[in-house]
Write a protein that binds this DNA or RNA. Structure first.
Length: 478
RNA sequence: GCGGGAGUAGCUCAAUGGUAGAGCUCCAGCCUUCCAAGCUGGUGGUGCGGGUUCGAUUCCCGUCUCCCGCUCCA
């Protein structure tokens, strides 16, 4: 056998295929032809996902002295979402350009207006480009005469006199009517119509509304944090790229409460901590990147947001967002609920609304990232000198769905089978193991390679006839 | 949602207006003392609904799903 050659980069097709073939992830409602943007985790995917969540909880709760776990409900009082800003913000009005098919948030369209006496020129831009466009506009219009250059919002659905121009193609009056897309799933509570709430679009609010409960019952002082894993739902306009963007997804979120002046430092510490966690569980640093959100892209609640990006098959994309939410959420909930959510420090006699740092990771994106990172296809020559390829998942031991496979070398001898089955029975209380005797040993090894099994334990004739020893093969050399 | 492309077995792919095939996988049996060996047999399919037709997997319409782009984010 020659030295295996590794192929450079896994494609999304290869991952999807492996996931379905080996029982990691299936299309949801498969026998009905699937259902848009929904996926089910199969037996191995469930084990992998649970291992990822356990590894996260272990790192952010068990191994720290400043963290508490929580499991809040998905349905909450509808006022929660008014306080959080989601009712307003998740109602983005969108317009399409009929000329170029471009799509824009209606409230993100701006015009640079350059005027000089009777003469007026308009340049359409998108929010966030104002400063740059203003500077450029002033520069180009200063030659010769003095122009007055300003930036104004382009109001699509009101006849305010300014032209409606497409920033992409320049088309005039080519926008569709603004349509509101409420990103929250509305749902009815109880059998009587009219009593509604929402499926939570983030788990974070479940933490904020329990902040005081946890603070008091766990006798916490600042700083401390609350960690939660759970489902969230967003009625995304566009889904896709396998499980990367779905309407139902799972989050691993931390809200870390600290003194206001410590917010920026704590924020940076969490960025470093979370990066280190991904490396600890096997993600190469060169496949991780950080993205600093520019002002205009940041959420309504945040003063600084840094994304941890991973090199997915689709390119670098967000795996986790770490935001400094300041005192926005607690202040909002104090106002909307009428409860005091101040923190009083008896020693310094200070009263503050704590600031909050939020590391928010996507569980499904984590699964996808760890699978991407682990996937290796090796080209090698078999006994006959034929080229063949072997798929190996190199998962971290703590994440691997199956820890060991117990394989009899052959199944035409009862003692081999009985011994191997006995061994599997002995290991089962301690580890997730698989017993397999349905093929030649080489085939059994390859099956386990493909699902990232850590150890293959083979019972051979020597085990029975001589010394009771088995062969343990380490399939995932670190 | 808009524009473009695509749906045949678990996977990769073939074929035809007239009984839908192959390789691999999978299952059972035989064989086998360590990296997808061999032999025999077997399961399994035209996404869904409607129309045209004597007959539709093939032609037409609708629908669902997937992929690429626009947009948003965990």
């Amino acid at each position: 056998m020659s030295e295996p050659e590794e192929c450079p980069m896994v494609t999304m097709e290869q991952l999807v295929s492996l996931c379905k073939r080996r029982g990691f992830i299936f299309p949801s409602s498969d026998i009905y032809g699937g259902f848009q943007s929904t996926y089910d985790y199969g037996p191995l995917g469930t084990l992998l996902k649970n291992n990822i969540k356990a590894a996260w909880l272990r790192a952010v709760v068990q191994e720290r002295d400043d963290m508490e776990p929580l499991d809040a409900s998905i349905l909450m009082h509808p006022r929660v979402w008014e306080a959080s800003g989601h009712v307003a913000v998740f109602n983005d009005p969108l317009v399409d350009c009929k000329a170029c098919q471009g799509r824009f948030r209606a409230d993100h369209l701006w015009l640079i207006v350059a005027s000089h006496g009777e003469e007026t020129k308009h340049y359409p831009i998108e929010a966030g480009e104002e400063e740059e466009a203003l500077a450029k506009g002033r520069e180009t219009h200063q030659i010769g005469k003095r122009w007055d250059v300003t930036a104004v919002p382009m109001v699509i659905d009101s006849p305010d006199g300014t032209p409606k121009l497409c920033p992409s193609c320049g088309g005039a009056e080519s926008f569709t009517e603004p349509r509101a897309f409420n990103m929250m799933f509305q749902t009815q509570v109880g059998p009587v119509e009219g009593n509604i709430t929402y499926l939570r679009p983030e788990t974070a609010q479940g933490i904020f509304v329990n902040y005081e409960n946890v603070l008091v019952t766990m006798r916490r002082k600042l700083p401390f944090g609350i960690a939660q894993v759970g489902k969230a739902f967003r009625n995304e306009i566009v889904t896709g790229n396998f499980t990367f963007r779905t309407r139902e997804f799972e989050q691993m979120e931390i809200e870390y409460f600290c003194w206001p002046e410590d917010g920026p430092r704590v924020h940076q510490e969490w960025i470093d901590t979370r990066l280190a966690w991904y490396e600890r569980y096997g993600i190469a640093r060169e496949n991780l990147d950080l993205y600093e959100h520019p002002d205009h892209k940041r959420s309504h609640y945040s003063t600084r947001t840094v994304d941890i990006l991973y090199r997915f098959p689709i390119g670098f994309a967000e795996l986790e967002g770490i935001a400094n939410r300041t005192d926005f959420d607690l202040s909002q909930h104090a106002q909307f609920s009428g409860k005091t959510l101040d923190y009083f420090d008896t020693k310094s006699e200070r009263r503050v609304v704590p600031h909050v740092v939020e590391p928010s990771a996507g569980v499904d994106r984590n699964v996808l990232a760890f699978l991407t990172e682990a996937y290796v296809e090796e080209e090698l020559l078999d006994q006959k000198g034929q080229k063949s390829s072997r798929t190996v998942l190199r998962l971290h031991p703590a994440l691997a769905p199956i820890k060991a496979a117990i394989l009899p070398l052959a199944k035409n001898r009862d003692e081999l089978v009985a011994c191997a089955q006995g061994l599997a029975r002995e290991l089962r209380p301690h580890f997730q193991v698989q017993y397999d005797d349905t093929g030649a040993i080489g085939k059994l090894y390859r099956r386990q390679d493909e699902i990232g099994t850590l150890y293959c334990i083979t019972v051979d004739h020597q085990t029975i006839d001589e010394d009771g020893q088995v062969t343990i093969r380490d399939r995932v050399p670190q």
